[in-house]
C-alpha cells in the first residue's frame, strides 16, 4: 500500500503548476526510492505506457539531494520506513533544492490510520496496491492536489506580501506627514516620484525612507 503526503513538500514544479488538464500528454518523471525490488518492479510495470517515467534508486540515501537535483523529478515515491524521509522533509526548510510532492509506499496495516491523520492537512491520498489503474490514478491525484496546493499557497503568499507592502507604505506616509508637514496626497506623490526616478518599487522606497527617517529621528 502507499499513501500520499505532499503537505510538507513544496514548490518546484513550474511544469506541474500548469498541468491542470489531467489528460495532458506531458511527461512526468518519478524518482522511486525503494530497496524492495519486487515492489519497485511492480510499481514500474504499472506505469508502462503512461505519462510517467520512472527512475529507480535502491539505496539512495547519501547522495539523495544530488540525485534529486540531477534527475529533477516531478514526483518522489519513497518507502515510509526509509531513513531518507528526513532528507526529503528538509527540502523546503533548510535546503535550496526545490521541494517535490512525495508519495509514500507502506507495507504497514497502519496505512489507513496514517492517511486519515495526514488527510487533515492540505492534501493526502490513500491507495491500495500496485494495481496499474490504481497507481496511475493516485499519481494523477497527487499531481493535481500538489498543483492546487501550490496555487493556494502562492495566492496566500501574494496576499500577505501585498498587505505587508501596504502597511510599509502607510507607515512611511505617516512619518513623512509628521516630520515634513506634508498632507497624505503630497506624501504619497513624493514617494511615487522617487520610485519612478530611481526605477524602484514604491514599497522599496517606503522601506528606505522609514529606515532613514527613523535613523535621523533617533539621532536627534
Amino acid at each position: 500500500m502507499f499513501c500520499f503526503v505532499p503537505s510538507r513538500f513544496y514548490v518546484c514544479l513550474a511544469t506541474l503548476l500548469h498541468v491542470d488538464d489531467m489528460n495532458s500528454p506531458s511527461r512526468l518523471s518519478i524518482l522511486l526510492i525503494d530497496d524492495n525490488h519486487a515492489r519497485a518492479q511492480a510499481f514500474t510495470a504499472a506505469l508502462v505506457e503512461s505519462r510517467y517515467h520512472v527512475t529507480h534508486l535502491s539505496s539512495a540515501t547519501q547522495r539523495l539531494l544530488k540525485d534529486v537535483d540531477r534527475i529533477q523529478p516531478d514526483i518522489i515515491v519513497i518507502d515510509i520506513e526509509s531513513p531518507s524521509r528526513d532528507v526529503l522533509d528538509s527540502l523546503h526548510t533548510i535546503s535550496s533544492v526545490a521541494p517535490k510532492p512525495v508519495v509514500m509506499f507502506s507495507d504497514e496495516e497502519d496505512t489507513d490510520i496514517i492517511n486519515q491523520s495526514v488527510r487533515s492537512g492540505v492534501t493526502a491520498y490513500v491507495v491500495g496496491d500496485t494495481e496499474p489503474k490504481r497507481v496511475r490514478s493516485i499519481l494523477d491525484a497527487a499531481v493535481a492536489r500538489f498543483g492546487e496546493y501550490q496555487r493556494l499557497r502562492q495566492e496566500l503568499d501574494e496576499t500577505k506580501h501585498a498587505l505587508a507592502a501596504k502597511q510599509t507604505i502607510d507607515k512611511a506616509k505617516r512619518l513623512l506627514m509628521q516630520q515634513r508637514g506634508m498632507d497624505e496626497q503630497q506624501a504619497y506623490s513624493a514617494m511615487r516620484k522617487m520610485a519612478m526616478d530611481v526605477g524602484q518599487k514604491i514599497e522599496d522606497i517606503a522601506r528606505t525612507l522609514l529606515s532613514v527617517l527613523n535613523h535621523l529621528d533617533n539621532g536627534k
Binding site: 515510509i80 520506513e81 524521509r85 528526513d86 526529503l88 496514517i114 491523520s117 495526514v118
Partner: peptide, 12 residues
C-alpha cells in the same frame, strides 16, 4: 528509521 515517520505515526 526517520524522525518524520516517527512524527507522522505519533500524530496518527
Amino acid at each position: 528509521h526517520s524522525w518524520s515517520t516517527l512524527r507522522d505515526k505519533l500524530h496518527a
